[in-house]
Design a protein around this nucleic acid. Structure first.
Lengths: 160, 160
DNA sequence: GGTGAAACTTCTAATAA
DNA sequence: TTATTAGAAGTTTCACC
């Protein structure tokens, strides 16, 4: 795949879409003083290049009854079991993301649950996976999400 | 705020939009055998109720030159400094999310960086914040993201 | 609650520059 | 690469169930 180079126009388009994926292309066009057709072509190119891989809704999980977040560090018997355990973990819907890591833990994941009791069930489920020797849980008391926009600006402007 | 109850139609709408926020309402309407106007009203209600809080693009950060992910556990002098440190951390664009946690660490955050050298700079920046005594870094060797859809199904069907 | 249709807006692809 | 254009498609409102 050829290296894809984004210019300022692309940056501005991403900048507007990252906050609201349904921003009309005509609005973007007006703000950038280009035509809507151009916006369309640019977005399509970024999709084709795999820069934009999709879009998703932001949901308020608390309002859906899922107010509990924790991180679970996992210790394995042997690192050769990593892929197997990773696959088992990903079968649990409450595990939102898992990482194979260096350092203290072999695998490290984030879980979303209804409450402590529900979280306990999930952690037990993880503990039960073949090859898992021990887990260590960190409960989130407060989550603070950094705006994606800020990271994007730093990427495009080489700050940070 | 009155308790907002989602029904099967709402679930199905979310189900389609969560994968592609630009799915035309007419498509959703066709699939669910309702009118596009109804889809529109339902989505608006979920937005007003704060269930849907926004939408965002999924970007391939690797393609943007940010292929490094790590989690950083932070130890504080005194827990009373937590809010101060949290604010400082959130000023760093590369920090994508931060949590106040129970357990081993006082604060726990995820960072995205270009490479190890860039990550080092970020971690030094965190180390330098007043009140931070020590940090512990876990480098992600492999990230595996669980489909949001799966969590949603589990929320709506009480599996898990 | 929902519908269907009208009015309006936006998308998209083709053409031309 | 970008702009223009025009027909197709989508959104949104509203009178009426």
């Amino acid at each position: 795949m050829a290296k894809f180079k984004l210019d300022d126009t692309d940056h501005s388009i991403l900048d507007m879409l990252i906050d609201n994926t349904r921003t009309p292309f005509t609005d973007i066009a007006k703000k950038l003083d280009i035509s809507a057709g151009t916006v369309h072509v640019r977005v399509k190119k970024m999709e084709e290049a795999g820069i934009i891989t999709g879009s998703s809704l932001k949901l308020d999980y608390k309002k859906l009854g899922y107010s509990f977040i924790a991180y679970v560090g996992i210790f394995l018997n042997k690192t050769s079991q990593t892929q197997f355990v990773l696959e088992r973990i990903n079968e649990i819907p409450s595990v939102t993301v898992a990482h194979v890591t260096t350092g203290k833990f072999n695998i490290f994941c984030k879980i979303r649950a209804k409450n402590t009791s529900h979280a306990k069930d999930i952690i037990y489920k993880i503990d039960d996976i073949d090859g898992v020797t021990r887990t260590e849980t960190m409960i989130s008391l407060e989550e603070s999400i950094n705006d994606k926009k800020r990271l994007m600006h730093s990427i495009f402007n080489a700050l940070d």
